[in-house]
């Protein structure tokens, strides 16, 4: 197990390097430059040149890249072009909100998705299974911005039970978390239903039923744990995607998260903030995948042994 973790950490360093390098290149290839954007249309060429110099963007791209790598090695991301604050401070000020939203959505999606799949897998192709598939397709098919607006309409404006937007109290979290959770719920329900149905055909489930367990008991006590491997992996991947992909939801609910910060920073060519944010998200995705692998090893004693070897 420890050697697996060690291997994954070593690979992780390369992944982080790759992601940050890609981001460094992409944002500079995109049209528009920070000095012009910051100074506005009335700026003189001299002013623009002075600012470009000050932001460290005057040398050629290789020099810039080497300087950037030197900074990265000491975890120094530079200051925001817009506000002058350290970029990493801006990012970490948004991180708690993003984590709250992501965690909330994940808890909802896992609880609802797994429950739906357990109901469906008891009798594949039965009535409940069909209802669950229909719900999954609906959840996955409805566009997030529309769901968000509908939820605000119903719960905030008509029923007046939740705030419509912003952050601060736990009540503020409810609607955006649900909105973000719906497609994720559908993914978990579908994958879990598939792996559970497959596990229900395994001989050891027949053994359990031959011992007098009902379908539901065999499903929960024997099939469930063996069916969770792929689900855990997908959840690990998807949570990572949620962290960076919550932009639309954050916009609809005016949620001050990382997604909004990235969009704003890209629009204003605030290179340092974008780079810091992407670094943090990549780190987060890697950590989650590692956690998913560890959970998988704990679920399956056979993997545990191999990983020990």
């Amino acid at each position: 197990m420890m050697s697996m973790i060690g291997r994954r950490l070593a690979v992780g360093v390369f992944v982080i390097w790759g992601v940050t390098t890609l981001m460094f290149v992409l944002i500079r290839v995109a049209p528009g430059d920070p000095a012009t954007t910051l100074l506005g249309p009335d700026a003189t060429p001299e002013q623009i040149e002075a600012l470009t110099e000050r932001l460290g963007l005057s040398g050629n791209i290789v020099e810039q890249y080497l300087a950037y790598l030197r900074q990265l090695a000491t975890l120094d991301f530079g200051d925001s072009f817009r506000t002058g604050q350290p970029a990493i401070a801006l990012v970490s000020s948004r991180l708690p909100e993003t984590l709250q939203l992501t965690l909330g959505a994940t808890v909802i999606a896992a609880a609802v998705g797994l429950t739906l799949s357990l109901l469906a897998a008891r009798r594949p192709d039965g009535a409940i299974d069909r209802v669950v598939s229909t719900i999954s397709i609906l959840f996955q098919g409805m566009p997030t911005f529309w769901v968000g607006i509908m939820l605000i309409l119903i719960f905030a404006l008509v029923l007046r039970v939740t705030p419509s937007s912003g952050a601060g109290t736990p009540a503020h979290l409810i609607l955006p978390a649900i909105t973000l959770a719906l497609p994720f719920t559908a993914i978990i329900a579908r994958i879990s239903r598939a792996t559970l149905t497959e596990a229900m055909r395994e001989p050891y489930v027949q053994t359990a039923r031959a011992k007098g367990l009902s379908r539901g008991e065999a499903l929960r006590n024997h099939a469930f744990r063996n069916a969770m491997g792929p689900v855990v992996t997908i959840v690990g991947l998807q949570v990572g995607a949620l962290v960076g992909g919550a932009v639309v939801v954050e916009n609809v609910f005016a949620w001050p998260g990382l997604g909004t910060l990235i969009v704003d920073s890209v629009a204003s060519r605030d290179y340092t903030v974008v780079q810091a944010a992407v670094f943090v998200i990549a780190l987060f995705v890697l950590a989650l995948n590692l956690v998913a692998d560890i959970v998988n090893a704990l679920l399956d004693p056979r993997i545990r042994v191999e990983a020990n070897a």
Partner: peptide, 15 residues
């Protein structure tokens, strides 16, 4: 009660 052909498959691998 019943016993099956392949004891490895008939036992739950994670219990």
């Amino acid at each position: 009660a019943m016993i099956f052909q392949d004891p490895l498959a008939a036992l739950n691998p994670s219990q």
